[in-house]
Write a protein that binds this DNA or RNA. Structure first.
Length: 467
RNA sequence: GGAGUCGUACCCAAGUGGCCUAAGGGGACGGUCUGCAAAACCGUUUUUUCAUCGGUUCGAAUCCGAUCGACUCCUCCA
């Protein structure tokens, strides 16, 4: 299996630390609002990665955090905690807000067929672990206290910014954020706040440095190491996390434990954009999954849409493009339904069928080339040299990665058709037999008005509910 | 100001030196079938074309340069 590693900027052969096992940490949501569909694209990508690893025989320990404290708004380190802000705006407690949006996030990801990570951990449950890391950093001489806050000093390590390939000299000259006088180096970041801008902060904890709350980057270091160890295989997130969040995670993790590298493979998903650019949660207007559902789309239409582009390319969202994905997925579902009606899956593949299977898995195992894998799937479906039994078996197998819910698609059946409809269909067949087409067409219109379509096949008429 | 990515046929989107006379999906149109439809299947839209202009090469959508355009990051962000 091959994976693109942001650290090396190359596609590399994936080699786990332990045979047949993978430890994978994915940055989760900050639960102060609904996830928009751009956020969700990243979780779909991570799910596809996990499923592909599993298909390649790895047992994946998938850890995802829930950020419910410490994620600040605005520039620099002087913003307000996002949860606190939301709480003030709505009059609800921060804990309510976090619980509500965590629940919403779980619902969204479940409806997208995203497998639930084995460990889902909340930042507020791991304050002690975070304090432990700050202590380790303090012991190692990587911190200083200024203006009441504990800072990480990036000048105490010699490879700060290696993931993002930051050129520190140039960054300083081009910095646009206002300089925080408390920092020795503008790129230093807060590990522990005791002197937040907002005195009425609700979520605070005691610490050796005073009552306060942790910096945002700390939680991912603390929780990933708690569940996956001081050195693990894969760390995922959106590309925006590279220059700041992941850069700081690496700095504090490697400085705290002395273990390098902390993570072997860094995998990042590109943005979903629209005609105006990227969707941003903080800029106000954004599309959520429930908005798509209100427009009549199935969440899996969006999942299919995500699969039509490669995860490292920007994907342009439009309702037109989503329509295309929906049509394609419906076609796939219909095909599966009709196959299920006629045949049982036949896992004994012909040579031809096996070649499509190989093309599919080669594409997925080569840095998750889902669009190519889908092409292999469709070519297989259209190939008349592949038996229907093989087709069905292959589709269901491929879907263990694609996650389009093909196993849940039911075989076409006419059972639940109301008696009234059935008798009309019979009547129409009779009229057709007598070549009374005016009457048969009239009955067809009546059926359509009742919400049923009728198709004449060589085997006789077939009724189906109009969707 | 600095760093980087991208521009592929009607739309989305693969492909990153020869097997490309460019996957796959969607749409549209045409055909087969049908009393007519729908569905299904087949074909066309896709023979020198991959933003534009130059260059390298026996050979380029794929490499290099310039130009135009779009986007991202350096600041919270998936």
């Amino acid at each position: 299996m091959k994976l693109y590693n942001t650290m090396s900027r190359k596609v590399e052969d994936f080699k786990p630390i332990e045979d047949h096992k993978v430890g994978m940490y994915c940055c989760g949501p900050t639960v102060y609002n609904f996830a928009h569909i751009g956020n969700l694209r990243t979780y779909v990508f991570e799910d596809i990665l996990r499923r592909t690893l599993e298909k390649n025989g790895y047992k994946v320990k998938h850890v995802m955090n829930i950020t419910d404290v410490g994620h600040l708004t605005g520039d620099g380190d002087d913003g307000e905690d996002k949860l606190e802000k939301r709480s003030r705006e709505t009059g609800r407690s921060v804990w309510d807000i976090a619980a509500f949006y965590t629940e919403a996030f779980m619902k969204d990801t479940a409806s997208l067929n995203i497998k639930r990570p084995g460990v889902i951990c909340k930042a507020t449950d791991h304050i002690n672990e975070m304090i432990g890391i700050v202590k380790m950093l303090e012991d190692g001489g990587h911190t200083y206290i200024s203006g009441g806050n504990v800072y990480f000093s990036i000048d105490t390590i010699d490879d700060y910014g290696k993931l993002a390939k930051l050129n520190l000299d140039e960054l300083k000259s081009g910095a646009r954020i206002s300089v925080d006088d408390n920092k020795r180096n503008p790129k230093d970041f807060v590990l522990w706040f005791t002197n937040g801008k907002f005195k009425d902060q609700v979520m605070v904890w005691p610490s050796p440095w005073g009552v306060g709350y942790p910096g945002w980057h700390l939680e991912c270091s603390a929780m990933s190491m708690k569940y996956l160890g001081r050195h693990f295989d894969i760390h995922c997130g959106g590309i925006d996390a590279i220059p700041v969040h992941h850069t700081n995670e690496i700095a504090q993790s490697e400085a705290a434990t002395g273990e390098k590298p902390w993570v072997n493979y860094w995998c990042h998903g590109e943005f979903l954009i629209n005609d105006k650019g990227k969707m941003s949660k903080s800029s106000g207007e954004f599309l959520t999954l429930s908005v798509l559902v209100e427009h009549g789309y199935d969440p899996l239409d969006y999942r299919y849409f995500c699969l039509t582009g490669h995860y490292r390319s920007q994907l342009k969202f439009s309702y037109e493009a989503l329509d295309h994905a929906r049509s394609a997925r419906q076609g796939l579902n219909e095909k599966v339904a009709s196959l299920k009606k006629d045949v049982q899956p036949d896992p004994v593949l012909s040579e031809k069928a096996a070649s499509y299977r190989d093309a599919f898995y080669d594409a997925m195992s080569n840095d998750l080339h889902a669009p190519q894998a889908l092409a292999a799937l469709w070519s297989m479906l259209k190939d008349q040299d592949v038996s229907d039994g093989n087709k069905l078996a292959l589709l269901l197998d491929m879907d263990s990665i694609l996650g389009l819910g093909l196993d849940a698609v039911e075989a076409e059946k006419a059972e639940s058709v109301p008696e009234e409809v059935l008798s009309l269909v019979k009547e129409r067949a009779e009229a057709k037999k007598n070549k009374d087409f005016a009457k048969s067409d009239e009955i067809r219109d009546r059926l359509a008005a009742m919400g049923w379509s009728v198709k004449d096949t060589p085997k006789g008429p077939v009724v189906a509910k109009i969707v």
